[in-house]
Design a protein around this nucleic acid. Structure first.
Lengths: 232, 232
DNA sequence: AACACCAGTTAAATATTGTTAACCAAACGA
DNA sequence: TCGTTTGGTTAACAATATTTAACTGGTGTT
């Protein structure tokens, strides 16, 4: 897989160099421009995956540049670097269609998190958005902690258990197609993966035994569903 | 369709304004309150589809507000805006009945994804809340649970039994065309599927023996019907 | 009544799913 | 580095669900 290409436009030479250096270190391929005009030229010449734009810049400010870029390539994600308390700037930026903003001063780590978050989201925007928390019956799935909280306490989950419960909970009371679930979790719906999933279903049914309102029923040849009845 | 109404309670004026502006831009109808008390007053006055509550707020914190809201309108989804590392807060919030949380700082896009996910989920669960139930004679078919409740107790059904009983019950006292039922359940009305269905009819007749008021009669060459006589 | 056909029942064959335990490889800790 | 642990896969077997087959009894037609 080729490197992620970033168009960085920042007029402060210090910050610019730090950004470039750091992003290179982290495996990205940043192109640094010193002002909006230079940024525009680079954008026209090459293809990028994401833009980091300062707002206050000589010759052409970040907004103008962003607008022009969006006119040409609407789906190119843009992250603005704004001075603190520039609320109006932020709002203006969001209107243009920026995907996020980060206020100066920021830590490199924070920046990286934002960049990754945007890339992740824009890349697989068609994927189901993972909520952090799913509730069903007396259970709470803490998806990003991989923990299932039930009447008998908290239960650490393996990642496969976690994924499978998430899919079931997201489609609560609706049929989950076998092959669909397999493709989501294992990538393909081969025979052995299917058997593996059956093993996990069995494990999960045990975990869910603590609440009789909750059960996984199977629809032969189709899939299964998590049903939550509302009886007290 | 009218706009989705959001109750946003956030004491940081900067973040509050940004939230409001962004959500408006994205087609929502946010009402911004500066503290918990104001939020409570707005809540009492108008109807909302979702609440975004900061936790740390003057006058009335997010938890207290959430609890009060849930007391009045239990199904109103709540999303907490929490500071990082406030894990205890999060757990507490979830127990109150929050639907999700998002830790500051968060990107606008991330927030939007959460909001949409919650709305989608709660809307969906509205649709399915009424688990499908069919009554005939002394029987109740719990379609979603694949259970037939009769005078002798509950009976777990296979999915084919379940489907067939559902069709019969849905068309109670009316003729069910053979080929129609076959196409509904098996997809096509081939000879073998027809024989299969006969096997299931036989099984189902056994299940229905417990109530003499209920029986399946066949209309030669046409189909069959579930008849329920009125006699006590 | 004799025939053809349709439907009912039961049992056997097949396919799918459920469960447990053995196995394996990667990650971890001493 | 060597055991140990952990998560995940595979194998083996049990239990169910569904289909097919075989046989039986009806129904309508001539």
């Amino acid at each position: 897989m080729s490197k992620v290409r970033l168009l960085v436009v920042e007029d402060d030479p210090n910050l610019g160099d730090i950004l470039k250096e750091y992003l290179e270190m982290k495996g990205y391929e940043p192109t640094l421009c010193r002002d909006g005009e230079e940024g525009w030229n680079k954008f026209k010449k090459d293809k990028y995956d994401l833009c980091l734009l300062d707002i206050m810049m000589p010759k052409k400010d970040g907004f103008t540049l962003a607008k022009e870029i969006k006119k040409v390539q609407e789906d190119l994600p843009i992250l603005f670097l704004t001075a603190k308390n520039q609320k109006d700037d932020i709002i203006e930026g969001l209107k243009i269609g920026a995907d996020d903003y980060i206020t100066k001063p920021f830590s490199m780590e924070e920046l990286l998190l934002r960049v990754n978050a945007i890339l992740r989201r824009t890349k697989k925007s068609d994927e189901v958005i993972a909520l952090k928390v799913y509730k069903f019956g007396d259970f709470i799935l803490h998806y990003d902690e991989q923990v299932l909280e039930g009447p008998k306490g908290r239960n650490k989950l393996t990642s496969k258990e976690n994924e499978l419960i998430r899919i079931l909970a997201a489609e609560m009371n609706k049929l989950v197609n076998r092959s669909h679930a397999l493709k989501q979790i294992w990538g393909d719906d081969s025979y052995f993966n299917a058997r593996s999933m059956d093993v996990y279903l069995s494990k999960i049914r045990k975990l869910l035994k603590d609440d009789p309102k909750v059960q996984i029923i199977t629809v032969h040849g189709e899939g299964f569903k998590l049903i939550v009845s509302e009886k007290q």
